[in-house]
Design a protein around this nucleic acid. Sequence first.
DNA 1: AGGGCTTATCGTCGCACTGACGATAAAAGG
DNA 2: CCTTTTATCGTCAGTGCGACGATAAGCCCT
Lengths: 249, 249
Amino acid sequence: MQKRSEDTGSVPATAATLPVTVDIVALTVRSGRLQVLVVERGIPPFAGRSALPGGFVLPGETLETAAARELAEETGIVPPGHMEQLRSYGPYGRDPRGPVLTVAYLLLAPSSGLPQAGGDTADATWVPVEEAAPADGGGPVLAFDHDRILADGVERARAKLEYSPLATSFCREEFTIAELRAVYEAVWGTRLDARNFHRKATDTPGFLEPTGRTDASGPGRPAELYRLAPGARPSAAVLHPPLLRPRRP
Amino acid sequence: MQKRSEDTGSVPATAATLPVTVDIVALTVRSGRLQVLVVERGIPPFAGRSALPGGFVLPGETLETAAARELAEETGIVPPGHMEQLRSYGPYGRDPRGPVLTVAYLLLAPSSGLPQAGGDTADATWVPVEEAAPADGGGPVLAFDHDRILADGVERARAKLEYSPLATSFCREEFTIAELRAVYEAVWGTRLDARNFHRKATDTPGFLEPTGRTDASGPGRPAELYRLAPGARPSAAVLHPPLLRPRRP
DNA sequence: AGGGCTTATCGTCGCACTGACGATAAAAGG
DNA sequence: CCTTTTATCGTCAGTGCGACGATAAGCCCT
């Protein structure tokens, strides 16, 4: 795979070579709250502390592959949902073992069929993001610089819900408007008017597609079931007008 | 800097170690067009081809430091403006020398005081992004995967202008509404109504602050000079209502 | 069967924002 | 003074949105 000839040149000897890790901000919506997957570290550094799932990239591995592998190792399954790169952090001042570059990934997954724990590393549990990301000046909660990575991931998710169909990644294949609204409310931490949300969600072109089926599991009038409109990728800014989160003042 | 003890553990021997580069998508607005800084490569691979400025991270260097150093080496100056991380690419399938991880940065700089070329590597020139990023199915223009990185950077810039004061990073300290509008028109590639833009820009709270001075250099009525409102960081989504780019329908 | 409860869905109204575009202000150059 | 040019201010109709009323369609209970 690695050619060394006059045509391609070679990596200069002065170039730094860095160990690279991937960390995953895995988010889901359970019991009406936005929750993040954290693992309890079994080995130093930060043994016994909570951390985002992740680990070192192995030789020959793609970053995405490494992220999926670490997630599978620590949660026992490859969940459905949407994964995208968040950004990179480091390499200095974030790992006591020395310079380590990490590439963070953001996973948005439906809560159905998600395992609670398992794997060989340590216990993996879902915790509400407020517990893992204190907004006030409380001390750090997660190991390494994972507090900041989590905050960046949550903010990315909150922002992307406004102008992308990404919220559907938290839902099953088919879902009701109320379930979709619960996703927005959980991620944004706000309450939304059911009637206005219904209007906006169904009126936005290229967002939802009715399946014709209904869901009568809960109390009250059965709800129409929808799926993501065909051709709409979970990412990509296609929501016009956007679904803006309510303002403060 | 690098402690090795029972408390911190050490990087596992199985971890991959990768050479890391930084690449910079440096954008500016000159002659009413969005332009990107490209260098002509002097050494293999891709010798003679155009590429984004960038290079290998040196030992002990921060990614941001490396980005600033490469930019200084290849353009001869540290320009003002706003720099933020774009994302990471690789490490496979993007460099014929082997696996190389690159972290791309986005720089938005005013055109005033920007050098044309210089440095020890090769000539650095500003070229309109349409020439360096063919929207149609034309072949690749830049070396490595820099076509994609450039496209991602331009899209990031276009999106951020909508909800952040980032457009002011293309301007000098003080600027007129017309200059700011020219930035939006160049970045978005559209024409904007001068009267409506003036209303939206001046009415958006937390965006602009009048300086009281005027600029009478051009023809016509002298324009009020504005600066970025105090406390507003160039990034950060603070524009409400956002300045949305015109739609296609 | 009918009344009450719950949730889903549809409608209405006023306000804010937008785009299209007219009107005025303030300079330079003839 | 008049024309040209650009900046800035106003007007008006269409659209989207938040607040909230009204109706639909299930369930459970008696």
